[in-house]
Design a protein around this nucleic acid. Structure first.
Lengths: 264, 264
DNA sequence: TTCTTATTGTATAATTTTGACACAATAAAG
DNA sequence: CTTTATTGTGTCAAAATTATACAATAAGAA
């Protein structure tokens, strides 16, 4: 019995313990080379892309399910997950995904779903709750699960067409990320332990989608008192070397709790 | 056949058309006599209080269900509803509501539920999505439905113990109302067409839960340019009569879209 | 070595916003 | 005509914001 079949059998057996009509999807943001990225899974069977998502056990809280699903599908554990919106249209498939009975059956076969029990489950209507997370790409090593051939970080511009309404979910996640910027531990979660002021500024610029004035950004951030200055960083470039900074975690946590009170 | 039985029969017949395991609950904010209020329903059968909530039809979007449920249960229609959070603990009952089989059966009887089909439905686990709305109390006349003996506006301080986790839902709604203050048409939705500056200030104070400095509030609000000054308001009180104001709706809408950018 | 280049850390000045308070104007009651 | 409570507006210092300037500096080029 190959891996896929084994997985299918295990999933089929677990269906009785799942709460019907509900699911979770995770938008995992990472930051690398001054670019904001999102973690996507590609299906083994038909190479389509999707967000890491899954179902809820009958005896499991929605929030716990989000953490478990993310761990099972990517290996990422103990990360900050933030619920942001619940997507509940009758037909959450994209308009171009024909929803006739035959088309749906054919699509399930594309995904390698042959078991009638699983097919019946997958044909249900699911109301899905979106969570977003912020992770430091360097510190994590996501691994695709059985169903997925790969697990890739894509910049926002690179995001391909995703299954169902997952593109919409990503867009909404970015919107909430922006609105909640002052209340989220953006820097601590997304940056390496030590980073330059430019790293931090580019991160904010990536999230806000607009440029910020360098010297004013530096002054305002430093005035918050949440950064500790470390040694200089010799990049090898022909210009003045920037200092590295690290977060004063206690102060940062407090500031985030109250909301960082300025406009970038 | 009395009303309650008729309703029970109708509900029983509709269960097949409902999406299991999902529900919506609405936190309707109103403003009256300079007090922020919430609309609550009281059950005919056992006098317990709850938020107006209900279920989703299989062919209905989650957001549409929220509008329909609100209309059916209170008569309120075409109001601005804003999704804010999805509550998904395994057991959403309050800790003091004993969850043993017998206790649950007894509780359902308290609510007048005798049909086994309805009882089975009500025993399911429901993940509920919370919506909040802002309405002008003077313009609306909510009416309780079959199941409810009354439909009352309660100030935040007056809110009694509610069923399930509804007290938690109200608290979370107020939290989101505060955070999203600058992005919501608070004034236009909650105030009458013409209002005094004090009305507006007290509204913001009620939402924020803290006093604001009168003259500075007036200066900042007027500077936004979203108010049109009307005639004076002769209240009969022994003091200088205040001006009435109305919203410049186009400008207000634009400001709300971008987010009103100042701290109160 | 010296010059050049790109970037960094910091300073400065003009402008705007905020917070705290002052005060004359005024509607109605005594 | 005086008193009272509240309103519209003004002031002023402190703080924040914006735009700009400029010396310091790491490394490559001359």
């Amino acid at each position: 019995m190959d891996h896929t079949k084994k997985f299918a059998q295990e999933f089929e057996e677990s269906i009785d313990r799942l709460l019907p009509n509900n699911s979770v999807d995770c938008v995992i943001f990472g930051y690398e080379k001054q670019r904001l990225k999102v973690l996507l899974l590609q299906w083994k069977t038909n190479a389509e892309w999707s967000l890491p998502g899954g179902f809820i056990f009958k005896d499991e809280a929605l929030n716990s399910a989000a953490h478990r699903v993310l761990r099972e599908r990517t290996g990422l554990d103990e990360i900050f997950l933030n619920q942001f919106y619940t997507f509940g249209r009758q037909n959450r498939a994209r308009p171009d995904q024909n929803a006739t009975e035959e088309a749906t059956d054919k699509r399930l076969l594309d995904f390698g779903i042959t078991s009638p029990v699983i097919a019946e489950w997958m044909k249900k209507r699911f109301v899905t709750t979106g969570y977003f997370a912020l992770v430091n790409i360097a510190k994590t090593n996501p691994q695709p699960d059985f169903m997925s051939s790969s697990c890739e970080w894509k910049t926002i511009a690179e995001i391909p067409q995703l299954i169902l309404d997952h593109n919409e979910i990503v867009e909404k996640a970015i919107g909430y990320l922006r609105i909640q910027l002052n209340y989220l531990p953006i820097g601590l979660s997304l940056l390496p332990e030590k980073f330059t002021m430019q790293d931090l500024q580019k991160l904010y610029e990536a999230i806000l989608g607009r440029p910020l004035e360098r010297s004013n950004f530096q002054r305002k951030i430093l005035k918050l008192g949440m950064l500790v200055r470390k040694e200089k960083f010799m990049s090898g470039a022909a210009n003045k070397a920037p200092y590295l900074y690290a977060f004063d975690q206690a102060k940062y946590a407090q500031l985030i709790k109250e909301g960082i009170g300025f406009s970038y």
